[in-house]
Design a protein around this nucleic acid. Structure first.
Lengths: 215, 215
DNA sequence: TAGATTGTTAATCGATTAACAATC
DNA sequence: TAGATTGTTAATCGATTAACAATC
C-alpha cells in the first residue's frame, strides 16, 4: 500500500493533525469525524479524509476515526515512535536555547552533544551536555550514532560544516543558518530561516496597511 | 498596477530572492538574467520571471535585471525599508536568543522591550533591554509604537496573551508557541512551530531509510 | 541590425474541494 | 434497517512550466 510518493504538502500538515489529536486524546475524546476535525482545525473535511487516505484507511464508515488509534498511527508515520540522536553545532544563544528545550525529548529526539569553534565556550554545560571542540565532530557522530545535526552557526561557517557532515553517517540537518546547503540527496535538510519568516510577516503587515488606505 | 492579490506562495519566495540578490550585489555583480538566477537558485527561470512580474516589470528585454535595483525593489515590497518596533514576550532561552540576535536590526526590526511573568526574570538585561512585568504590556505597546509582538512563551499562556494583544495597536504576532492563535484578521500571525519542523524532518529521514530497504 | 532576454499568454501539472457510492 | 461517515472518484481551482511575441 506504500507505493506512490506522498507530497510534501501532506507531510507538512501531519504534525498539526498530530497536535490536535493529542489534545483531543488528553481531553479523553474517543472518536472524531472528519467534520468535527474540520471545524476544529479550520480545514475542509475533504482534505482531512484525503490526507489520511494517503496512508491507508484509518477510519470506519458511519463512525469516524478513533482518536487514540489515529494519533498513534500518525506518530508512527512521522517516525516519532523511534529515537533520533542529535547534536547541536553552534553553542551561541540559539543553540543553547534549543539544547535546553525539553520537549524534543518527548518526541524521541535525544540531545547528545554540542560543538563550537569558540575556545571560550568549550567545556560549558548545556543541560548536562558539555560543549566540545569541532575537531571531535566526526568521531563523536560515529561513536554515538548521531542521526541529526542542528546547525546554529553563522552562515559563513555553515557551508563547510555541512560538507564535513556530508562525509559522516548523519541522516539529516536541521539548518538555522541563513544559507542554502548543498548536500547529497541521502541527507535530508530542513531549513528554519527565521529572518525569512520575519520578512514574510513584514510584507503582510504592510499589505494590510495599504489595503486599508485604499479600500 | 497593485490590483490582484499576490499569492502567499510568491511572498514566501521573495526573502530567498532577496538573499541571493544581496549576495550578488555584495560580490559586485551588476546584472543578472532569469536564467543565471535560475541556475544559482535551482528554480525555473519561468518562475522567477513570473514571480517578479506580479509586481510590475523590473527587467529589460535583452539585458536582464539590474541586481541593485531589483534588490532594492524587493526590499521595498517586503517592507524592510521601514522600521518595525517589536517586543518579545517570554524571557526564556528562546526569547533571549532572539533578543540577542543582531541581524533583525539590519532589516529594520527594532528590539524595544521584553516581558515575562516570572518575577525572577524581571529586571534582567537582554542587549540593553530590561525584562518588564506583564502588567506593563499594554501601556508599553501604546507608548512605544510597537508593531510586532514575538511570542516565546509556553502554549498554556499564549492564547490568553494573544487575546490581550488583540486589544492593542499590535499589527502582527510572530508566534513560537505551539498553538494556533485566534486573533482578528487585522493582526497578522506568522507561526514558527519548531517541533512541527522537526517532525517533518523525522518523517523524511524514515521515508528515505525505507526506500533504501526496498528499492 | 541581430541576439538576448523579458513580459505574458497558453499548456500542464498538482493540489484542493465536491460529490457520492460503499459500508459500518 | 436507517443514519452517519468514510474512502474514493470526478470536478475545480491554482500554481508551475513552456512557449513565444515584444522589445531592448
Amino acid at each position: 500500500m506504500e507505493d506512490r510518493e506522498i507530497s510534501q504538502a501532506v507531510i507538512g500538515r501531519l504534525p498539526r493533525y498530530f497536535r490536535y489529536l493529542g489534545e483531543l486524546k488528553d481531553e479523553g475524546v474517543e472518536r472524531v469525524s472528519s467534520q468535527d476535525l474540520s471545524r476544529l482545525m479550520k480545514v475542509t473535511a475533504s482534505q482531512i479524509r484525503q490526507d489520511f487516505n494517503n496512508f491507508g484507511g484509518f477510519g470506519q464508515q458511519g463512525y469516524g476515526y478513533n482518536v487514540e488509534y489515529l494519533y498513534n498511527e500518525i506518530g508512527k508515520i512521522l517516525g516519532i515512535d523511534r529515537q533520533h540522536n542529535f547534536i547541536i553545532i553552534g553553542a551561541g544563544n540559539l543553540g543553547r536555547a534549543l539544547g535546553n528545550y525539553m520537549n524534543f525529548e518527548r518526541r524521541g529526539f535525544i540531545f547528545c552533544g554540542m560543538f563550537d569553534v569558540d575556545p571560550e565556550l568549550i567545556g560549558r554545560d548545556v543541560r548536562g551536555v558539555s560543549v566540545r571542540p569541532m575537531e571531535e565532530l566526526e568521531g563523536f557522530i560515529e561513536e554515538n550514532n548521531i542521526d541529526i545535526a542542528v546547525l546554529t552557526i553563522p552562515k559563513a561557517g555553515a557551508v563547510s560544516v555541512a560538507e564535513r557532515l556530508a562525509r559522516t553517517r548523519i541522516k539529516a540537518i536541521w539548518n538555522f543558518a541563513h544559507v542554502d546547503l548543498n548536500v547529497p540527496d541521502r541527507i535530508q535538510v530542513e531549513n528554519v530561516h527565521l529572518s525569512d519568516s520575519l520578512m514574510k510577516l513584514s510584507y503582510n503587515i504592510n499589505r494590510c496597511a495599504q489595503e486599508q488606505e485604499q479600500p
